[in-house]
Design a protein around this nucleic acid. Structure first.
Lengths: 242, 242
DNA sequence: AGACTAAGTGAACTCGGTTCGCTTAACAAG
DNA sequence: CTTGTTAAGCGAACCGAGTTCACTTAGTCT
């Protein structure tokens, strides 16, 4: 049997296989469906985080047995991938029309970040375009169009869009679970910085107070502006001067 | 008992508590020590990935019982945090002296990325500075110094350094487990792009061939250059024009 | 009506992390 | 040297996760 090849969930091969047999499903109709499972998984994921999403919990929520779930998905890994794409399909919207490219990209970046912050359970599972479903690629498509329209090559556009996605994901992942605006958290961070070896970390010790108050949003805005500036710098030389 | 507060491993509070009682350890000497455990965990992590690192496996490797591990570590979470800091302490080196700021930062970014690629098991556990141990903060300290030296405020320097770290982490995390240079992988990606709905993804369908060949390194270099350019622009706002 | 097959079930199985009560060994004081 | 104290370590369990298996149920198609 040659189809025993272990196809990792979310890979290109996997998505191909899934879309190919998508129509075969739902002929025998019962209650359970892939979408229903994905939606339920998503609601658990959002309300109680990644750890709360267990097969038992999901089965209980759907009032079916655990084993029944395996008729629609082959593993928990796959479940997460499907739920992720569903979330993206539901939660990621196209940017408003009529904005300039810079504002559009900015809008997308913020929108993507807000989306991830709204679904903290998903962040850990995010991977690159190789692991995204069709829904997840829509935002990418839009970015590509924008970047190509302003003069980047297809290749550059892809690298640029990926860089943005990378940065957004990194930003959220990097600051997962820590509320940098929480005064208690700030105080702890200050004490941590102050307690470092002044020989090895002179700056952090000296500026503990100030550093403890820099939030994750500040860092995000800086990086975002930097990427935008870089694009601007890259396309303006080719523009006919004023 | 007020110290029953659940202190999450890796948080500022946790590191403070740990350093405070660090000297109490190792008085009664036996075979096991925190460093030994961390080193062993690391070697398992590096050679066989995050999933292979189980308490049973670790105990077997150290030829002790699982329960013995809990004399030094209170949970698997904590184990990972400790191992991480140990890895950073061992694997992250200071940049060579005498480079300009731009080259230094570039060196650091590449060094950090290479480090993460060399320890793929660690990436999933990376969090922001709030969750880093003293060793992990050394690179940050160096960056801060550089950025302040070239004219950024402490606050800006921190946001900037964080943005770099964020981007590096995001880049590795985003492309975890996918070898973009692998021809098979490229072929699959191309087929995936080609198979998309041309209505919704016209650009990706039309440029499937080209897109499938853009690697993760390309994206990384673009973003890195962008961040560096942004700093340059920020510190030389009004350079006397030619 | 009967064969076929997908959907769903309940009970297991395996393998994680973690806890419990116990033993062992190092040290300090008498 | 003995003895009390305490940290280090042990074996065996416990609990909860993902997954599989043999089986039943209910549509669908001759």
């Amino acid at each position: 049997m040659d189809d025993a090849t272990p196809v990792r969930a979310g890979t290109a091969a996997w998505w191909l296989a899934r879309t190919e047999k998508a129509d075969d499903r739902q002929r025998r109709r019962r209650m359970l469906s892939l979408d229903l499972i994905a939606d339920t998984a998503l609601s658990v994921l959002d309300s109680e985080g990644a750890d709360a999403l267990t097969m038992r919990r999901l089965a209980h929520e759907l009032r079916c047995s655990q084993a029944a779930l395996y008729r629609h998905i082959t593993s928990r890994d796959e479940l997460v991938v499907v739920a992720m794409d569903r979330a993206v399909g539901l939660g990621l919207h196209a940017p408003p029309e009529g904005l300039g490219w810079r504002q559009t990209v900015e809008w997308q970046a913020h929108s993507f970040r807000d989306f991830l912050l709204a679904h903290p359970g998903l962040v850990a599972f995010i991977r690159g375009t190789e692991r995204l479903g069709p829904s997840s690629l829509s935002g990418m498509e839009h970015s590509l169009g924008q970047f190509i329209a302003i003069g980047l090559s297809v290749r550059e556009a892809y690298a640029t869009a990926s860089a943005f996605a990378t940065f957004v994901v990194g930003s959220v992942q990097f600051n997962m679970g820590v509320d940098t605006a929480d005064p208690d958290e700030q105080r702890l961070r200050r004490r941590l910085y102050e307690g470092l070896d002044p020989q090895r970390h002179p700056i952090m010790v000296a500026n503990a107070e100030e550093l403890s108050r820099v939030g994750s949003r500040e860092e995000f805005e800086f990086g975002l502006a930097a990427l935008l500036d870089a694009i601007e710098a890259r396309i303006t030389p080719r523009r006919p001067g004023p």
